[in-house]
Structure formats: C-alpha cells, structure tokens
Amino acid sequence: MRHAERRRPDAAEGSGHTPEPDMNEVVGRDDLLLLTLDTLRYDVAAELAAAGELPGLAAHLPGGAWEERHAPGSFTYASHQAMFAGFLPTPARPGRHPRLFAARFAGSETTADGTFVFDAPDLPTALAARGYHTVCVGGVGFFNRRGALGRVLPGMFAESHWEPEFSVTSPTSFEAQVARVEEIVGRLPRERRLFVFLNVSALHQPNWFHLPGATSESGDSRASHAAALRYVDRHVGRLFAAMRARRRCFAIVTSDHGTAYGEDGYTGHRVGHPTVWTVPYRHFFLEPPA
C-alpha cells in the first residue's frame, strides 16, 4: 500500500515544493532518518543535481531536484537545537509553512493536523517515548562528547557514536559513519522502530582533500566543497539501503547551514550571508525491498 500525502494548496506538481506526509501516521509505523549534510550550500547542491552529478541522491529527491529553504541557524549547534525542537529549514517563499514535528506550545502558527506534536523538550526524547530506539552518529565537533558542549546534542539520544574517523579531518568520514549505521541496523531487533540522526562532516572545512590534485596549500574552495558532496553521493546509497532494509523509512535530507568562500568578503559561517542561510532540503520515503 502506498503512503498518503497531504499536499499544501500551493504545492503543485513540478513546483519544487515538497509534499507533506501526515506525520501522525508516519511516527510509530516507519523508521526515521534525519541526515544533515553539515555546511552544504544550496547553490552547490542545486548545480550538481541539475548537472546529473548526484545520482545517488537525485534518485530519491522528488523531481530529482532540491527544494530551496532557509536554515533555522547559521552554525551547527544553533541549527540542530532548533531542528530537534521541530524547526526544520523553512521553505524559501512567503507563507505559514506547516511543520513535520513540533514541540507543543501555545500560539504556534505552523502546527497543522499532520504535524507530530510532542510534549518532550526534543524530538529524540519524544520518539523514544513512542518506542523508537534513537541513535546519533556524529560528525563535527559539536557531537564528539569530548567536552560539556559536545555532549549536549548527542545526550538527547539513547545511543550516540563519534570517532575521529567520523570527523572533519578524515577523508573517509562518511564511509565510516555509514558502516556504523549498518552495524547498528544489523543488531537491532527487527520489530523495534529506529530513528537515526547522522551528521555528515565531509562538506565542512577542511574539505580540500576531496578535490583531485588539491593540497593543503590549495586550501578549501567552492570546488572542493562540491567535490565533497560528490564523495558523499557515492556512498549515500549504502546508507539508504541500510535504513530501508527492515521496513519503510521516512528520510529527511537537509543542510543545517551553508558556508561562504569569499563572497562579499565573507569566509565560513555564523554570519548573516545568503550563502549561509540558504540550504537544500528534501524529504521522501525509502521503500523496503520487494
């Protein structure tokens, strides 16, 4: 049986808008994946998808394209705190856009009939109360548990993982992260629902080593940022296969924020520049094998 989707009145076919499922039906029925491509810029993601250079991701993106959205924060910690409270990136067009998840609070204008509303302080805790095993596979330093700050976000999950091999300095970080998810899925009882959050560090600086022929002296650039996304795309199929192996999985793939490479004199993020605030987003179902 195919899943039902609630479409917003303005979500016409081919518009680039993402159809909204009823999350009250999804939660408790499907496994869940939140994949944040840390620091990924919208323009780079859109260009590579349009050029056919992201076959692994584009095969699942509705229409083969990204939706343009605005990040809820300009750097990793702020953005993930917001997302775990239900504030995913907002569609980059005017309007009140219904949210998939929302912590219950008076006066919310973006909670709709299909929103999964929870009373817990964060989404992982809410899903755990619904019987999900919640897993964090960290990437950047805010998930490394090496200090008090690095324990806040992974501390929301029943199980969390971070290794130096998952970090921004590893040229094979995403492969190592995917291998960990495969191991987790393989040992979890089949009847147990699963929520996996994976923070991809490969796009974050330093990323020069993903560009063939580049050296540390070359430094990071928009081109090496794009090369890092191609690297992630080559291995994302393994992640999707693992997450749909047991049952249908609802997947959210997004960036938490972008980053600047010299535009208007800006470099990096945690600044109010369009290259930072504008991010790619899509959600979709991963169907189990026939």
Rank of each mutant, 00 (worst) to 15 (best):
M1W: 04
R2K: 05
H3Q: 05
E5W: 14
R6A: 07
R6W: 03
R6Q: 05
D10E: 10
P21R: 13
D22F: 07
D22I: 00
E25G: 12
E25D: 12
R29S: 15
D30R: 12
D31T: 07
L33P: 12
L34A: 10
L37H: 14
Y42K: 14
V44A: 14
V44C: 09
L48Q: 15
L48G: 13
A49T: 13
A50F: 10
G52F: 08
P55K: 09
A58Y: 00
A58L: 01
A59N: 07
L61M: 14
P62K: 10
G64R: 07
A65G: 07
S79D: 03
H80P: 03
Q81K: 06
Q81N: 07
P89I: 06
P94S: 09
H97D: 07
L100W: 08
L100T: 04
A102L: 05
R104N: 03
S108Q: 08
E109M: 05
E109I: 06
T110G: 01
T111I: 15
A120P: 06
L123I: 12
P124V: 09
L127C: 13
H133F: 09
T134Q: 03
G138I: 06
V152N: 00
L153Y: 07
L153I: 13
L153H: 03
P154A: 11
F157R: 03
S160R: 01
H161D: 03
P164G: 10
P171I: 02
F174E: 00
E175M: 11
A179Y: 04
R180V: 04
V181E: 00
L188T: 15
P189Y: 02
R190C: 02
E191A: 11
L194Q: 08
F197V: 10
F197Y: 15
L198E: 05
V200A: 15
S201W: 10
S201C: 10
Q205L: 15
P206L: 12
W208S: 04
T215H: 08
E217F: 11
E217N: 04
S221H: 05
R222A: 15
H225Q: 05
H225A: 09
A226F: 14
A228T: 11
A228E: 07
Y231A: 14
R234P: 04
R238A: 12
R238F: 05
L239G: 09
A241E: 15
A242G: 08
A245I: 11
R246Y: 03
C249P: 09
I252H: 05
I252C: 12
G258Y: 02
G258T: 08
A260D: 04
G262F: 15
Y266M: 06
Y266P: 01
Y266K: 02
T267S: 12
T267F: 11
T267Y: 12
H269R: 00
R270E: 13
V271C: 14
V271D: 09
G272T: 09
H273V: 11
P280A: 09
H283Y: 04
F285R: 07
E287P: 01
E287Q: 05
A290E: 01
A290L: 05
